[in-house]
């Protein structure tokens, strides 16, 4: 099960790979210091450019965070209800502005979670097919095809979802309601209504994040050391056993990274969700019922007619989405860091 400690590769890369996750960074840094005497103009220019890019990114992030914090501070101080637990969104009510993110946070997380549950296994399968099963002649065009999915604009996904997917999901919905209704989650309170629900949004988001997860996982699977695979095969493993014992453990951090990229898109997707979801300020665990909302969708819908406080309130919602995304990504980094010792990715 656990792959044997990865052999000989660490010797090749020279400097002691003690820190691990990102070997290129550590090799790069130590390489730079050892070559200090040889610095030329090109080096300093390139260093300036790359450091500048890095700093620019930090400045942009800080500017976004600062802007959101400032505007949301204004809004939350004027909210007459609890910002975290209120369901409704009525910030421009002059007498009693009230707005809260409960429904939005729930909808955002649930729809993204559904998308991940569907997309990650399928994407892993596609990636394995491309990297290990398909003949080269098929694998290449197939990979391009998957990448093409990422180039489809999200409004197209939204229109396709609203005009094609929703009407065709009624059969699946009634099946789920009939056989899995006892789980409460799959119960439909209004059978026959168009399936413009968080579940449908989850399916749509799954299709949208599929190419990202597939592309990154595929590249990671391709990097599995040939020696690992051949060793597994030589020990009598079948192809499936080889993938289970050599490829998947090596690729796990890569799959997680890929999923995080996909999750980021799923959490922030705006126009496709706004086109498909029938939004309402109802928080329901019946994920097949039309209703609910997501942060990005709510911002897109309410921004046009929002008054001054309404705009600030939307910034506050954006702030929460920003924080949620940061937390999710941080959690993923933690998982990767924790796993790296066992996976062999630091070989």
């Amino acid at each position: 099960m656990t792959s044997s400690p990865p052999p000989d590769f660490s010797e090749k890369s020279g400097p002691p790979a003690s820190t691990g996750v990102r070997p290129p960074a550590s090799t790069g840094r130590s390489g730079q210091s050892s070559l200090k005497g040889n610095s030329r103009l090109g080096d300093s220019v390139f260093f300036g450019l790359s450091a500048g890019s890095g700093i620019l990114l930090l400045v942009i992030m800080a500017a976004i965070a600062g802007f959101l914090l400032f505007r949301s501070g204004i809004a939350i101080s004027k909210d007459h209800t609890n910002f975290l637990t209120t369901f409704g969104w009525d910030p421009d009510n002059i007498l009693k502005p009230s707005f809260g993110i409960a429904v939005l946070a729930f909808g955002t997380i649930v729809s993204a979670a559904i998308a991940m549950l569907i997309a990650v296994p399928i994407a892993t399968g596609i990636a394995l097919f491309i990297s290990h099963y398909a003949p080269r002649r098929i694998a290449q065009p197939f990979a391009y095809l998957v990448d093409l999915l990422a180039a489809v604009p999200s409004i197209i996904y939204g229109l396709w979802g609203a005009l094609f997917l929703v009407p065709h999901l009624n059969g699946l919905m009634s099946w789920l309601n009939e056989y899995l209704g006892w789980t409460y989650i799959f119960k439909t309170t209004d059978p026959g209504a168009p399936a413009r629900s968080l579940f449908t949004v989850g399916i749509l988001l799954a299709i949208m994040v599929l190419p990202i997860i597939t592309a990154v996982s595929r590249e990671v699977f391709r990097q599995v050391p040939r020696a690992h695979e051949e060793a597994a095969l030589a020990l009598g493993a079948t192809r499936w056993e080889m993938i289970r014992t050599a490829v998947l453990p090596f690729g796990r951090p890569g799959i997680i990274s890929a999923s995080m990229l996909g999750l980021g898109r799923a959490l922030g997707e705006t126009i496709a969700v706004a086109t498909v979801l029938s939004s309402s300020s109802v928080l329901s665990l019946h994920i097949l019922d039309a209703g609910g909302g997501t942060f990005a969708q709510n911002i897109a819908l309410k921004f046009g007619e929002a008054g001054p406080l309404g705009k600030d309130a939307l910034m506050a919602a954006g702030m929460v989405l920003f924080v949620i995304t940061l937390l999710v990504n941080g959690a993923a980094r933690l998982i990767i860091a924790r796993r790296k010792e066992y996976s062999g990715a630091n070989a």
Partner: peptide, 9 residues
């Protein structure tokens, strides 16, 4: 992804 979402907006 970011280009796509920008385009969508």
């Amino acid at each position: 992804v970011s280009t796509l979402s920008l385009a969508a907006c």
